[in-house]
Design a protein around this nucleic acid. Structure first.
Length: 490
RNA sequence: GCGGGUGUAGCUCAGUGGUAGAGCGUCACGUUGCCAACGUGAAUGUCGUCGGUUCAAAUCCGAUCACCCGCUCCA
C-alpha cells in the first residue's frame, strides 16, 4: 500500500483539489499564512464540529464561550505574554546559536537583567556584547547586533491617530476564558468541577515557521479550561488525557501514528505541574513526531495572576498604559478569597480552582486527518487516489449521479439531490463517464455515491457505492436519507 | 537566523541567449453506458517579482518574495 511521504505531494493535492491555498498567492504569498479552499473549509468545519460535540455538547460539565480576539492589554501583562513575548536576541556568529541578550553572562559581572523591557527603547540602546560569552560554544564577543523580537501581533484601537491605545491580537484563546471565569460562574449555575471551551483564531509572530500549515502565524485553537478542586487535579488530568487521545482515534487517525509525549520536568513551564503532548507522525521534517495538542495541569496559576492584574490597575492608569513600566502587584495575603475564587458549598471552603487545559491546534489536526486519510490502492491495474476520511469529517457526504445524461435519469437524480442536500453536504454531477465521476469523489474523500440508472425507473431503487470497499448496494430511493443518517450521525 | 535546493499552464515537469512546450486535468460536441473509455475541438502563461546586461532574456547578472530539506529556535 503506497503512502504519501513527501510534504510536496500533500501541498500539491491540497491545491489541486481545493483544500488549502497559499494566502494572497497572486501577490507572491505571505510567509506562513494559508487559506482554506472549498473542500478544506468543509473539512475544517467538520473537525471543529466534532471537537465541540465531544468536548461541549455531549458533556454535562462543559460550557462554551466565544471571546473577542482583542482584549484589555493588562490581560497579557498578567498572563506573562507581554514580557516573555518581547525579547532582544542575538546570534553567535561562531556557532549560530540564538540567545536572549538578557541571558548572556560575561566572565565577571552579573548578567544584564532586562525583564519587562520596552522593546522599542531597548532595541535603540547600545548593548556592549564584547565581553559576553556564548553559552553554547563559549566564544567571547562574537555576536550579531541584537535583534528585537515581538512575538505578539500589535494593533491600535481608536480612530483618532493622536489618541490610540496599543492592543494585541491574542496569542492564545485561553486567557479569554480565565478573564470570563467569574461571568460564567455567576450566570450558569455551574459547580466545580466544570470546564469552559472555546474555538477561535490566535496570532503569533513565529520566530521560525514550519512545514505548510503546521506552524502558521494566524491559526485556530480549540481549548478547554477545566476547573477543579485542588487535590482532584491529577484525576482530571488523567481523564482528559484519555478523552483527547481517543477523540483522534475515534475519528480515524491510525493508532501507529499517534502517541503521547510527557514533558520532562525541566521542560515544564514554571507554573505547570504536568504536561503531555499528543503527537502525530507527520511525513515532514525528519519524519518526526509533531505536537497536535498539549494537555497541561496549569494549577491555579492563571486565575491568581489575573487577581494580581486587577490589583495593578492603578499603575496601569498612572503609567498611561505603558506595560513595560508596570510591575504586577504581589498577591493579597488572602488571595484565595479573591474575585476569581470559588466557594464550595459542601465543604464551606473558598479556594482558587486548579485548571486542566487540553489545547488543540485545529489546523494541525485538520492536516493530520488529511495526511492520515490519504491512500493509494489499485483497482483493475489502475492506481486510485483516495482520501479515507471518517464519514463525520468528509467534506462531501454523498455524491448523486444519473448513470447517463438522458432518459429522464437526471431529473430523478436532481430530485434526490435536492432532498438530501437540506441535511447533508452533497454533490451533483451528470457529466462524463461514471467511472471518472466515482474516482473524482474518491480523491475528495466522499464516502458514498448514489447512482440513478435504468432500473430506478422500474422499481425505484438506486445503487449506493461505498468509497472504501467499492461495493454497490441497491436500496429504495426513499431509504437513502435514513441510510445516510445512520452512517453519518455523530 | 544559518546552509542547501526549488519557482515555466490548475497539477507534474521539459525547455542553457533567437516563435512558450508536453503529459495529466478542465470545458464543449459526438459516441458509450457502473469504476480515471474513445474521437474531434477549445480555453488557460505578469516563465515568482523588481531591476541590470544585450539587437534580443524563461535562459546571463543583482536584489527581493515564497516554498521545500537540514540546522537553530520554540512562548
Amino acid at each position: 500500500m503506497a503512502k504519501l511521504t513527501r510534504l510536496d505531494d500533500i501541498v500539491s493535492l491540497c491545491k489541486r483539489r481545493g483544500f488549502i491555498f497559499q494566502l494572497s498567492e497572486i501577490y507572491g504569498g505571505l510567509a506562513a499564512c494559508y487559506d482554506y479552499g472549498p473542500l478544506g473549509v468543509e473539512l475544517k468545519r467538520n473537525v471543529r464540529a466534532a471537537w465541540w460535540k465531544a468536548v461541549v455538547q455531549t458533556r454535562d460539565d462543559v460550557l462554551g464561550l466565544d471571546c473577542a480576539i482583542l482584549m484589555h492589554p493588562m490581560v497579557w501583562k498578567a498572563s506573562g505574554h507581554a514580557d516573555k513575548f518581547a525579547d532582544l536576541v542575538t546570534v553567535c556568529t561562531q556557532c549560530n546559536t540564538r540567545t536572549r541578550v538578557d541571558h548572556l553572562a560575561d566572565g565577571s559581572a552579573a548578567q544584564e537583567h532586562i525583564e519587562h523591557v520596552d522593546i522599542d527603547i531597548e532595541a535603540g540602546k547600545e548593548h556592549n556584547l564584547s565581553n559576553k560569552v556564548c553559552p553554547a560554544c563559549g566564544a567571547v564577543g562574537q555576536f550579531t547586533k541584537p535583534m528585537a523580537f515581538r512575538l505578539m501581533f500589535e494593533t491600535q484601537m481608536g480612530a483618532n491617530a493622536d489618541d490610540t491605545m496599543k492592543v494585541f491580537l491574542r496569542p492564545e484563546t485561553a486567557q479569554g476564558i480565565f478573564v470570563n471565569f467569574r461571568n460564567v460562574l455567576d450566570s450558569s449555575r455551574v459547580k466545580i468541577p466544570f470546564g469552559i471551551a472555546q474555538i477561535g483564531k490566535s496570532f503569533r509572530n513565529e520566530v521560525t515557521t514550519k512545514a505548510f500549515i503546521f506552524r502558521t502565524r494566524e491559526f485556530e485553537q480549540a481549548e478547554l479550561e477545566f476547573f477543579c478542586k485542588p487535590g482532584t487535579d491529577e484525576e482530571w488530568y488523567a481523564h482528559w488525557k484519555e478523552q483527547r487521545f481517543n477523540w483522534y482515534l475515534n475519528l480515524g487517525i491510525k493508532k501507529e501514528n499517534l502517541r503521547f509525549r510527557d514533558h520532562e520536568p525541566d521542560e515544564l513551564a514554571h507554573y505547570a505541574k504536568a504536561c503531555v503532548d499528543v503527537e502525530y507522525k507527520f511525513p515532514f521534517g525528519s519524519g518526526d513526531w509533531q505536537e497536535l495538542e498539549g494537555i497541561a495541569n496549569r494549577t491555579d496559576f492563571d486565575l491568581r495572576q489575573h487577581q494580581r492584574g486587577i490589583r495593578t490597575m492603578n499603575d496601569w492608569y498612572a503609567q498611561k498604559g505603558d506595560l513595560s513600566k508596570i510591575t504586577l502587584r504581589e498577591e493579597a495575603e488572602d488571595y484565595f478569597k479573591g474575585p476569581l475564587s470559588y466557594f464550595d458549598e459542601e465543604t464551606r471552603q473558598r479556594y482558587i480552582p486548579y485548571v486542566i487545559e487540553p489545547s488543540a491546534g485545529v489546523d494541525r489536526s485538520t492536516l493530520a486527518f488529511l495526511v492520515d486519510a490519504y491512500d493509494e490502492d489499485e483497482v483493475n491495474g489502475e492506481t486510485r487516489n483516495v482520501l479515507r476520511f471518517h464519514p463525520h469529517l468528509a467534506p462531501i457526504k454523498a455524491a448523486i449521479f444519473p448513470l447517463v445524461k438522458k432518459d429522464g435519469l437526471p431529473e430523478i437524480a436532481r430530485n434526490l439531490y435536492n432532498d438530501l442536500k437540506t441535511q447533508f453536504q452533497c454533490f451533483y454531477d451528470e457529466k462524463g463517464a461514471i467511472g471518472r465521476r466515482y474516482r473524482r469523489q474518491d480523491e475528495a474523500g466522499t464516502p458514498y455515491c448514489m447512482t440513478i440508472d435504468g432500473q430506478t425507473k422500474e422499481d425505484g431503487t438506486v445503487t449506493v457505492r461505498d468509497r472504501d470497499s467499492l461495493q454497490q448496494t441497491r436500496m429504495p430511493l426513499d431509504q437513502v436519507k435514513n441510510f445516510l443518517r445512520d452512517k453519518l450521525e455523530l
